[in-house]
Amino acid sequence: MPSVYIRPIAFADSPQSEEGEAIRLGGGLVYASRFAIIVRDGGRVVSRHRFGTADVQTVLGGLPDSLAEDAIQQWDNLRRTHAPLVCGQRMLRLDQPQIMGILNVTPDSFSDGGKFLDKPDAALEHAHAMLSAGAGLIDVGGESTRPGAAAVWEGDEVKRVVPVIEQLAVAGAAISIDSRRSSVIEAALAAGAHIVNDVSAMRHDPRTAEIVARSGAPVVLMHAPGADGDLHADGDYGDVVLDVFDALRDRRDAALAAGIARERILLDPGIGFGKSLAENLALINALPLYHALGQPILFGASRKRMIGALSNEALAHQRMPGSLMLALKAMDAGCQMVRVHDVAETVQAFHVWRGLRDAALTDFSQLA
């Protein structure tokens, strides 16, 4: 059965620079002015047409009935404004990018494994430093999901994350739990975590959807091609950009069917999970497309292997400049949340990015 996709392909600094013929992408500070409407059938792209906002009614009206309803929904989704996320006493606004600071209490994470394991004081000191630097929330994880990482017993994972989460909750921080196991997620939420960040998109553990729905916590659903043991396996794509779109739509719909409210679902294209360098680059260039799914987008590529592959095999601790470049690319794509190791540097880059956006919005000389 044919599928349709609407991909933003041209952008404006402000709506007035296009005399109003631009849409506000995902309710943020990014404006799209031209689009491609793509039809795929049997895994093959059969048509691609470009259009501007002035032509949208004609273009959508010319689609077959079997595609028109989905295309209209995607157009509405591209312009959807997202409500803030409620995290205890804190509200995370999604009309601008939020910086998520990474806190790994693991022995073997690819970048900072072992640095904070069994060192609660050091972990909390690092978390507070990230918050002071401007992180909107802290993502606490007790299991490495790098390729080849050893499996972790869920009891050990709970012991790693719960004490840190309890202390951060007392301090009033917004907290997410990075886990794919329902028992860990349940313990983390009871300890004070506010958001569930599941790299398996709730495929690994069937109880997770029930727990998330009952708790009312927002959930991040990340794309990874592999099942259960190896999230990086089975990365066989016809068109990685559209295949990931379809997979995220399926997981979004599964979450809705499980009783999770739409405004509490975020999506993550899963950079580095079961994808080649070329596939990761294609996904990053196509990030604006994923707003057509109608959910906030989380982007995480901090210090990942692809940066080293493009930078003379730079080691993980040497990948901060590349991480900043990708974070800014995500902001330019309208992503609502950016997950990073280097919080202070990313926040500073964001402030400059935000200043440029604000200046463009107030530059009325473009109307002359």
Score class of each variant (00 low, 15 high):
193 A>D: 13
152 V>L: 13
158 V>Y: 02
155 G>I: 01
134 G>Y: 04
188 A>F: 02
149 A>H: 06
188 A>S: 15
168 L>G: 07
166 E>M: 02
163 P>F: 05
160 R>I: 08
193 A>E: 13
140 V>D: 05
180 R>M: 01
187 A>S: 13
160 R>G: 04
152 V>S: 12
177 I>K: 11
193 A>H: 15
193 A>I: 14
146 R>K: 09
192 G>W: 04
139 D>L: 01
183 S>W: 07
165 I>F: 08
138 I>M: 04
192 G>D: 07
146 R>Q: 05
153 W>Q: 14
154 E>P: 02
168 L>E: 04
135 A>K: 09
147 P>Y: 00
191 A>E: 09
185 I>A: 02
136 G>C: 00
135 A>I: 13
148 G>R: 02
175 I>K: 06
184 V>T: 15
141 G>T: 11
134 G>S: 10
185 I>E: 01
171 A>P: 00
138 I>G: 11
149 A>Y: 08
146 R>E: 04
144 S>F: 03
191 A>T: 08
185 I>N: 10
179 S>A: 11
149 A>V: 09
184 V>N: 03
157 E>R: 14
177 I>V: 15
175 I>W: 00
188 A>N: 12
172 G>Y: 05
166 E>S: 03
159 K>V: 01
185 I>W: 03
186 E>N: 11
136 G>H: 01
167 Q>R: 10
144 S>C: 06
140 V>K: 14
174 A>S: 09
169 A>S: 13
149 A>D: 04
155 G>Q: 15
161 V>Q: 03
193 A>F: 11
143 E>A: 09
171 A>E: 04
166 E>Y: 00
192 G>K: 12
189 L>K: 14
187 A>R: 07
192 G>P: 11
176 S>C: 07
149 A>W: 13
183 S>G: 13
155 G>R: 01
188 A>E: 08
180 R>L: 04
149 A>G: 12
177 I>R: 15
193 A>N: 12
160 R>S: 05
181 R>A: 10
165 I>S: 07
